[in-house]
Amino acid sequence: MNIFRLFGDLSHLAAIIILLLKIWKSRSCAGISGKSQILFAIVFTTRYLDLLTSFISLYNTSMKMIYIGCSYATVYLIYAKFRATYDGNHDSFRVEFLIVPVGGLAVLINHDFSLLEILWTFSIYLESVAILPQLFMISKTGEAETITTHYLFCQGLYRALYLINWIWRFYFEGFFDMIAIVAGVVQTILYCDFFYLYVTKVLKGKKLSLPA
């Protein structure tokens, strides 16, 4: 464990908690893409099946349980409890255009042709594009609540910190996982446009509104 991975995990945890609290306290999921949250729940489910097969550390196991629990709770709040506030018209990204290619790629390019490894690979590829429905929804509505931008910033920062963690681990441990690195680079690049808007607008106290 290194400082970059630790802060990456904490940033990811913060993002998940911020979103869950935002929906719970405001009793509304306006501006939130339910499709992205479903994709994240799939990402955690397919990636953390090893909870059933191997124990790495208390930290590892507890974080995985928290991620899975919070992501399903968030999906539940969006599609069940606060369904009336779900903006389905703007959450119109065709996720099948993500899941099918990612599923195919996971079967073709992986480290080991075993079920757990293919599911893990699928999860890594899916996570790199899982935020697209959310970014697409913001581009359609033309704006985002400030709390949502903080959620997105933490979500994007987490994988950016993981990129530094992988540089650190390659240099000090000779460890690297090309699949995770390439997907992580793609994932972080997808946030660049948002990062620019976040730094130039939200951090200056303005509301994030895209040029219509």
């Binding site: 995990d9 990811h12 090893d50 191997s54 590892n60 480290h111 080991d112 490894e117 993981y162 963690n165």
Partner: peptide, 10 residues
Amino acid sequence: HSGECKKDEL
């Protein structure tokens, strides 16, 4: 190869 490198990351 991924065989020996455990998946210790989240």
